[in-house]
């Protein structure tokens, strides 16, 4: 029997196995969130256009104005405030419900253990970064997510909660006055709401680059839920190997 297994292993040089990776709930909420967040960002821009006061200014010199005129024109964001509000205040419900579902699922299923950074994560994330930038050869050992992923994917959830809180703080500053207070006032809440959105865009860019670099197998697992693992022959077989050599 051992001999036979060895032959199979040698013939295919590998053993195909299905390794479960992402739960259905995680895949569902991920792909539902993507278009919803896109619509929220787009409709948010329609709203922001009406009072586009944010800029990056240092020592009296403005380096960047959110956003340049050509940008608004190119994406047809001009004079659409009421439309933007109508879209924003519909899709906010879906964004919140999807988010609540994901968080509850992750907590109850115990999947949070593979997601939330642990005490090693912050040190290890640095090593992951060095590895990804091809400065360091070895990446630290990981489970489902590496340390950098744990931090990034947990941060994005915290950011989502932040968007809901800052959003409510500027949406109903009288009824939810305590949220507005918590956010440091109406102005700061609006700034935070905006900065979080810029954060999503930056996250998206890095995320997509990383997914492309990680390859098809990794990407497809977020749709199918599993990865096909080509296992090396098991130690049992290696023993057979050694015996044969003897």
């Amino acid at each position: 029997m051992i001999q036979l297994l060895y032959i199979i292993a040698k013939f295919t040089n590998q053993m195909k196995t299905i390794k479960e990776k992402h739960s259905l709930a995680m895949r569902w909420t991920h792909w539902v969130n993507f278009p919803i967040l896109t619509i929220m960002i787009w409709s948010g821009m329609l709203i922001y256009w009406a009072n586009d006061e944010y800029k990056i200014t240092l020592f009296g010199h403005t380096y960047f104005h959110f956003f340049p005129d050509w940008f608004y024109k190119k994406f047809h964001l001009v004079h659409r405030l009421s439309e933007g509000m109508a879209f924003h205040f519909l899709f906010m419900w879906f964004f919140v419900l999807n988010g609540i579902f994901y968080i509850l699922y992750t907590l109850i299923s115990g999947e949070w253990r593979e997601l939330v950074p642990n005490k090693h994560s912050f040190k290890e994330a640095w090593l992951v970064l060095l590895h990804d930038l091809h400065i360091r050869k070895m990446a630290p050992p990981q489970k489902k997510y590496n340390a950098a992923q744990r931090i990034a994917y947990t941060a994005i959830i915290v950011m989502g909660i932040g968007s809901v809180i800052t959003g409510l703080a500027i949406y109903k500053p009288v009824q939810f006055y305590y949220l507005t207070w918590l956010c440091g006032g109406y102005h700061l809440a609006r700034i935070l709401h905006f900065v979080l959105t810029i954060g999503y865009v930056l996250f998206f860019v890095i995320h997509v680059v990383q997914v492309i670099l990680a390859g098809w197998r990794n990407f497809s697992s977020v749709i199918s839920g599993f990865e096909v693992v080509n296992d090396q022959p098991k130690p049992k077989i290696k023993v057979a190997d050694e015996n044969e050599k003897d």
Binding site: A50, N51, Y186
Partner: peptide
């Protein structure tokens, strides 16, 4: 009080 406009200014 802080008067708020739909446009986003106050």
């Amino acid at each position: 009080f802080d008067f708020k406009c739909v446009e986003g200014w106050d």
